[in-house]
Computed example of a mutant assay.
Amino acid sequence: MDTIWQYSIRTLLGFIVLLLLTRLLGKKQLSQMTFFTYITGIALGNIAGEMVVNKEIKVVAGITAMTIWALLTIMIEQLSLKSPMIRVLLDGEPAIVIKKGKIQVKAMALSKLNMDDLSMLLRDKNVFSIREVDYAILEPNGKLSVLKKEEAENPTKKDLQLPVQERLYLPTELIADGKIVKKNLKELQLNREWLEEQIKRLGAQSIQEVFFAELQSDGSIFLDKKSNG
């Protein structure tokens, strides 16, 4: 029983410390994952895992190791913001793999990229033929940025000389899973009474009948009622 409690406490402490440190490291760990930040995340997870399951590692030692690792990561990230040389060393540089419609074989070899990989990355950008591509750049985080040839670009409203309506709002959830998203209503400076009035205009007698509601960019409401089934 003591062992179960010990592991439970160690797990809880490891979870809390890891959560705090990842929040401290910032959103780049998820949104701009590079090789360096990827390794950092794995290392922190391994340290936390070892601290939890290995009784020979003291909790203080594990927490200290995670904290120092996180602080070193933050320090290196700060240096990379000020020094382009360090930034390139840590994150690498973008590689142009297609230039003026021509595949750059040398750049692909240096990036350890083959034609199957390139085709897959292009399809992920809804490009199914290399002949449509003017430039393709492999970013440090492994994603591909694509600039199509002008004749392959989709026409914009400006190109077609269509009227453009100004966006009044960013599309925002107002009701999700049958519950009002109060935070969003507050940020939009709207209230429950206004919301109830809007959904009644769309045929719902009360908020209880609504599963999902979203404010559209033009100020209208998209409504999805609850299923009777």
Rank of each mutant, 00 (worst) to 15 (best):
A109F: 11
L160N: 02
E153M: 15
K200R: 13
Q6N: 14
G41W: 05
G178Q: 02
L144M: 09
V133W: 05
M66W: 05
K143M: 09
A176I: 14
I207H: 14
L174C: 05
L215H: 04
Q208L: 09
M115T: 13
M120C: 10
L118F: 14
S83N: 05
K99L: 06
K148P: 03
P155S: 11
M51C: 08
I16M: 11
K226C: 04
M108Q: 08
E151D: 14
Q198H: 07
F222T: 09
S217M: 04
P171I: 10
V53Q: 10
K112F: 10
P84F: 13
L25S: 06
R131N: 12
I199H: 02
F222C: 13
V17D: 07
L147I: 12
S111R: 09
V53D: 07
N228H: 11
K143S: 15
T40P: 01
V17M: 10
V97N: 05
S220D: 07
K58Y: 06
D91L: 07
D116R: 08
A70Y: 00
E197W: 03
T22F: 04
E77V: 01
P84L: 11
N114F: 04
L30M: 15
Q104I: 12
N184W: 07
M115Q: 06
Q6M: 14
I137A: 06
L170T: 10
L160A: 06
L81K: 09
E153I: 11
E173H: 13
F36M: 13
R192A: 10
Q216Y: 02
I199K: 01
K179V: 07
V53I: 09
R192T: 15
N191F: 05
